[in-house]
Design a protein around this nucleic acid. Structure first.
Length: 625
DNA sequence: GTAGGGTTAG
């Protein structure tokens, strides 16, 4: 339904001012002013904002254009407070000025300021938001997933009739993207269908939405339908694959993109590098590193952040640190990523040292920092330290704990053997513990073989039932594939990179060309490790099988297959590096310790949440199994 | 002036 058209009357003081008749004196003044203005714009173009500011002060009664240009420049290049100062100094502010300032708030993610600014604009200067205002505002609402506010902006758009072609496509796309980011697929689609004019940005935004929702088929169909496929289109598809754990497909998209002569940019590479992290494919990662250097992206903070994460997950924490040390400008993500890297390697002391260094350099830790730090303590068995940092977070840094922090704390306590304390901790939480919190406790019950508590926790999890499937449910007409955490397990898969190519295995896998050799080697290994006292822990086999069959079911677990292939393929001096998508099973953990002895190898397994360095019959992780 | 793809935890 269309609401009656409301005419917007923009009252600009400058426009109403009466101009005196032209005279020679005024002509000269105007000419000077024009020259000054030109000089100001040149300074801005050269990035000399301090000079531009001086020029502004010398212009007699500068017009809004001069102010606005400087506000934009300060918002973009900083210091941001200078933009606020210039804005405050303006004698009369037009809608462009308000918009420029709003764009600044949006760019710096200052949500509350932006909203207050918008209200001021309407209350103080009686200006009504126009298309540009909304186009700056909507991405901010999208980022905050502020759906109710977004919907009211949508209603305003309908009332204000922003339906000139140019406006409609801009505002429509921004609305569509806002709904997409708020995971409201139905409304996003409705906006898309209601748009008379669409452009490649509109398509890309919808493309991206499907990809993120894991609707790969729908994404592909849309991608094929698109007339213009640019860097962003490929980037959206690629990141969609990466975010849905389909790293290999992401590489296929990347190759296709290159074949079609679409040049990857910074965002494309930032999406691609985590695909290497995912696969723990060091050779691929090094190629990508080379590629970003060649393209001149190496100095980008986001690229370095992705590289730090990639090297850490590919087992080369030393190279992560190298990238980190060489960075010209680090942001909070750089520090968090590096701390997290130490965490998954069980280097809790190094993580703590880095955290202290971060504070020394004047960086304020955020909520994610503490998740990284506490989980680093957890992986290193530093229970007291972890508790200390949790207290510091709440007391000294006034960061309210989220569910994620509680998960880390339960993991820290329970994994450290303090099962009862962990249970009490859950009871005392101000939030209602979800499946993930109980899951952390259950995992620790298995490690510490506390069957009674384990049973109790299992019952809790059953009672909670599957997690709510979220707002995507509202997208009734769209099929959404969703994995419910903890209930539907994805199949265990392990892989190993040999000379730059990846070899993946699932349990009992016969598909590898050298399957016969691999199985033979595993049978031999079993004989050898049994001699050293290995006993299969068949409690990890859930199927109802005879003991001997259970032993075999364990023997052909994916991680063991990948390791056997590594033993066959790599020289004795080379460490075997295997990655598993889930957590390594307890029996495999024990068996691998023996394998390092009978085959005299160093074996590294990266599982779903940490690194296990096996050497001389031992594992670096503190878990008892 | 202007919308789209982006890195960190579990």
């Amino acid at each position: 339904m269309r609401l009656p058209r409301v005419h917007l009357r923009l009252v600009s003081t400058a426009a109403v001012r009466l101009h005196p008749p032209p005279s020679a004196a005024i002509y000269h003044e105007a000419k000077d002013k024009k020259e000054w203005q030109l000089e100001l714009e040149q300074h801005i173009a050269r990035g000399q904002l301090a000079f531009a500011r001086q020029v502004l002060d010398r212009i007699p009664a500068p017009d809004a254009r001069a102010y606005n240009a400087l506000i934009r420049a300060y918002s973009w290049r900083g210091p941001f407070h200078a933009a606020t100062n210039v804005f405050a100094k303006m004698p009369t502010r037009d809608v462009v000025a308000w918009n420029a300032m709003l764009a600044g708030y949006a760019q710096h993610g200052m949500y509350e300021h932006a909203i207050a600014h918008l209200l001021d604009m309407q209350a103080n200067d009686r200006l009504r938001p126009n298309a540009s205002t909304l186009v700056s505002l909507l991405p901010l609402l999208a980022q905050r997933e502020a759906l109710p506010r977004g919907a009211s902006v949508h209603a305003y758009c309908l009332r204000a009739c922003l339906d000139q072609k140019e406006e409609q496509v801009l505002v429509g796309t921004a609305l569509l993207d806002m709904y997409a980011k708020c995971k409201h697929l139905v409304y996003a689609c409705r906006v898309f269908h209601g748009m008379a004019v669409r452009n490649e940005v509109t398509w890309n935004s919808l493309l991206s939405m499907y990809a993120k929702a894991g609707l790969i088929n729908e994404t592909m169909a849309l991608f094929d339908e698109m007339a213009v496929k640019d860097t962003v289109s490929y980037g959206a598809l690629l990141s969609g694959y990466v975010q849905n754990g389909k790293a290999e497909e992401a590489f296929i998209v990347f190759k296709k993109m290159q074949a079609c002569n679409v040049e990857p940019d910074v965002a494309t590479m930032v999406s691609l590098i985590p695909a290497c992290s995912h696969l723990a494919a060091l050779q691929h990662g090094r190629c990508s590193h080379g590629s970003v250097v060649v393209r001149g992206f190496a100095s980008e903070t986001s690229i370095s952040n992705a590289l730090i994460d990639m090297y850490a997950k590919c087992g080369r924490i030393d190279l992560s640190r190298q990238v980190f040390d060489k960075m010209a400008a680090r942001d909070i993500v750089s520090w968090n990523t590096m701390i997290a890297g130490y965490g998954i390697h069980g280097l809790g002391k190094e993580a703590t040292t880095l955290f202290l260094g971060m504070k020394n350099q004047g960086f304020a830790p955020d909520d994610v920092t503490f998740i990284c730090l506490i989980s680093a303590c957890s992986h290193s068995g530093l229970v007291t330290e972890g508790k200390h940092w949790f207290n510091m977070m709440t007391q000294k840094h006034a960061i309210p704990p989220r569910m994620e922090h509680y998960i880390c704390m339960v993991d820290l306590l329970a994994r450290g053997g303090f099962l009862d304390e962990a249970y009490q901790f859950i009871q005392s939480m101000p939030l209602k513990a979800d499946v993930r919190v109980w899951g952390a406790l259950l995992g620790a019950c298995r490690i510490h073989k506390n069957i009674d508590l384990g049973k109790q926790v299992s019952r809790m999890i059953q009672k909670l039932g599957p997690e709510g499937t979220g707002r995507f449910d509202e997208a009734a007409e769209i099929r959404v594939t969703q994995k419910v955490k903890g209930f539907k397990k994805s199949p265990g898969c392990s892989w190993i990179e040999i000379n730059g190519s990846l070899h993946a295995f699932v349990g009992g896998d016969q598909s590898h060309p050298r399957a016969a050799d691999i199985y033979q080697e595993l049978d031999n290994i079993l004989i050898d490790i049994k001699k050293l006292g290995y006993q299969a822990d068949t409690s990890f086999v859930l199927q109802d099988l005879e003991e001997e069959e259970k032993e075999k079911a364990l023997l052909y677990h994916s991680e063991k297959l990948a390791i056997a292939f590594g033993i066959l393929s790599l020289g004795e001096d080379k460490a075997i590096f295997v990655t598993k998508n889930l957590r390594v099973c307890g029996d495999c953990h024990t068996a691998i310790k023996y394998m390092t002895l009978v085959r005299n190898r160093a074996i590294i397994v990266r599982d779903a949440n940490r690194f296990h360095h096996f050497k001389n019959g031992q594992c670096s992780c503190g878990d008892f199994w």
